[in-house]
Design a binder for these strands. Structure first.
Ligand SMILES: [Mn+2]
Ligand SMILES: [Mn+2]
Ligand SMILES: [Zn+2]
Ligand SMILES: [Zn+2]
Lengths: 149, 149
DNA sequence: CATTATAATGAAAATGATTTTCATTTTCAT
DNA sequence: ATGAAAATGAAAATCATTTTCATTATAATG
């Protein structure tokens, strides 16, 4: 279903199809969690050795522009991407101890955000809400080395 | 007043004082709004030509670690810093049209964030909340070129 | 004040993620 | 089948920030 969205997007842009891009898209959409370009390349290369990092970056940009991917830029300086669930939105809890990422939705917060915007005569297109701290496991075990990932 | 905080921090770290650092700190604290290292260097150099960018970066890091500065990393890939108002916290509305940044505080949102964390047995140390969109001016004038800054 | 260990400095090089370039290959409308 | 244009990937470029390193400045001590 999402695949057709991309096909449509490709066509509407006058782009062509290619096996490399197909492989990247396919691999990306099968991914769960948040994936960086480098990580995605590793997965893609398990299927096709000839795909380059540049193409992964280019495809990720295409996916993002077409609305099939959402880019996240948490703590670190690398971007990660996750498949977009249509009509859905969520925010994140990020553990600074182990790197674990949890997702949540909270309509009340979003409503309050709109209220804030209204007070400032501002029109929100999107927002970033990230809660950083310590997960249960890490608060038990005490200070731990952050997961590099 | 904040100055003494830094002095104390410097001493507790076994560091020495220097005129360059003093100048950077002084200039930074007099700044309003969100300032990048590069921008701060320009201001500092109006007073002292011999200060280097490296020292600005180092001082900004020191200020952040001592709690006198808060680092923000909005849309762009450059970090900006703002003087920390003691015991205060605020979040931002960022206009994608003109780059204008507005600040707000909303205790209700923060309370809901804590509630979310509690549900996940998570302990928040800090959070990022950024509302992106269009300000009143920009929504009037229609689509405009984003302020580079 | 002189000594001296070491912190501070800044120019230049390194880093690291992402983007750009460009010569070559592939796609697809005709 | 043909050709214009898109896609590719290796290598170079970008760009903010950090690291390196030779030199200078600071301040505790005698
Ligand atoms: Mn997510
Ligand atoms: Mn602010
Ligand atoms: Zn954890
Ligand atoms: Zn605006």
């Amino acid at each position: 279903m999402e695949r057709s969205l991309l096909k449509h997007f490709i066509k509407s842009r006058g782009l062509r199809q290619s096996s490399q891009r197909d492989r990247v898209v396919e691999t990306f959409l099968s991914q769960k969690g948040h994936t960086s370009a480098e990580e995605l390349l590793i997965q893609v290369r398990k299927k096709d050795k000839r795909v380059g990092l540049t193409t992964v970056y280019r495809t990720l940009k295409l996916l993002t522009e077409s609305g099939l991917a959402v880019e996240r830029k948490f703590n670190r300086q690398v971007s990660t991407f996750e498949p977009a669930r249509i009509g859905q939105h969520h925010d994140h809890l990020i553990c600074l101890g182990c790197g674990k990422i949890m997702e949540f939705e909270n309509k009340n917060i979003e409503t309050l955000q709109e209220e804030v915007a209204r007070k400032h005569t501002f029109f929100i297109t999107h927002h970033v809400l990230e809660l950083y701290g310590t997960c249960l496991d890490c608060s038990k075990k005490g200070a731990k080395k952050p997961k590099k990932k």
